[in-house]
Design a binder for these strands. Structure first.
Lengths: 189, 189
DNA sequence: AGTTGACCGAAATGGTTTTCTAGTCATTTT
DNA sequence: AAAATGACTAGAAAACCATTTCGGTCAACT
């Protein structure tokens, strides 16, 4: 099998298991059954290799988001489903969970950077959906980027942060209804 | 002058100047011109003393917020003005600025805790305003706590976080217009 | 009764040594 | 010749530990 793939696979496994910092190039080489030097024939350095892995993860996340979208549904339903699915990734996807931990604990710059990329990818994705629904005439013409950013931040606030400071945790339905009643309501024609 | 006041004054000065961690009880005692032991006659420990100072700061912040509120204005104008004023505090008020730094840099538990209190105070304040305007019949009946929380998180996101990831920084007017067009619009009767 | 600062143990600090690891490159393998 | 390798290096991180600092106490003092 092609060595680049082996390396990517090994790197993915190791980053997912141990995070960025705790993964060594030697570790990856061993899992991939190659010499350490070989990795550098395919990837400029550790960070570039990591980028590649994260890009792949973003693609996975996008696919899962696309998967929960129903063409015939209203914007609100689709946006809610997609955002929830992507936020779910934070807990269910090993690599994503690991790097979120790492960012909090060590603030590794490389990790901080890719988390920014993931966030940007989510915003872009939502942005596209907004544009599409504006085209369809189902929602008002708005600054899609600002709305997408607001939606992401609002969802993160209610899904991840609310529980940290409040005892009465919110069910997904309560969250859906609340946003239905506020942000989404404001987008209706 | 009464010793408790002297101590509070000294503590306020020192916490504002050096933050929680870098302020020592001896330092406070020296500024207050009392022995270190005296402080413990009035305050159980360093954290309780800090609490008292922060409570005072919250009161200050509330006063400033009240000050920018005009009875005859619409909800949206007052909410915007109050939130902006309170977020401004993060940069202009020495103590608040210091503890925000400290929280990021050292995650001091005591500091983390009081920052939560400040946030809760802001939400409560906005909550009251929402209730009042609901009474007045100027905005729809909504879950005031959720809306207040959303407003705070949204304002923080756009005022403090947007610039960290985007080049085109937003003017206060753009922010006001955007929220006018989304969250506040959804609250209109 | 109220105040004080010397004192204590636990924690933080900082300087030093040791270990680890990203990336290189001379050598080996194909 | 081209690709692969792992011993090697420099610099970063971790481990270590001696020393200092600081929150809180309390016996002495006013």
């Amino acid at each position: 099998m092609d060595r680049k793939q082996e390396i990517l696979l090994a790197a993915n496994k190791s980053f997912s298991l141990f995070g960025y910092k705790a993964t060594t190039m030697e570790q990856i080489a061993k899992i991939a059954n190659v010499g350490k030097g070989t990795i550098y024939n395919f990837f400029e350095n550790k960070e570039v290799l990591f980028q590649e892995i994260v890009l792949h993860m973003i693609e996975e996340m996008k696919q899962e988001a696309i998967h929960v979208i129903r063409e015939d549904a209203q914007f609100q339903e689709n946006a809610h489903a997609a955002l929830m699915k992507m936020l779910e990734f934070r807990e269910t996807h090993q690599l994503y969970a690991k790097i979120i931990d790492e960012e909090k604990q060590w603030k590794t710059p490389a990790v901080k950077h890719v988390i920014g990329q993931v966030e940007q990818a989510i915003v872009s994705f939502i942005c596209e959906k907004i544009d599409k629904y504006v085209q369809k005439g189902e929602i008002r013409q708005v600054n899609a980027e600002l709305v997408a950013y607001l939606l992401l931040k609002a969802y993160v606030a209610f899904v991840n942060d609310w529980n940290l400071t409040h005892d009465n945790s919110l069910s997904e339905e309560e969250i859906a209804n609340f946003f239905q009643d506020t942000i989404f309501r404001s987008l209706a024609i």
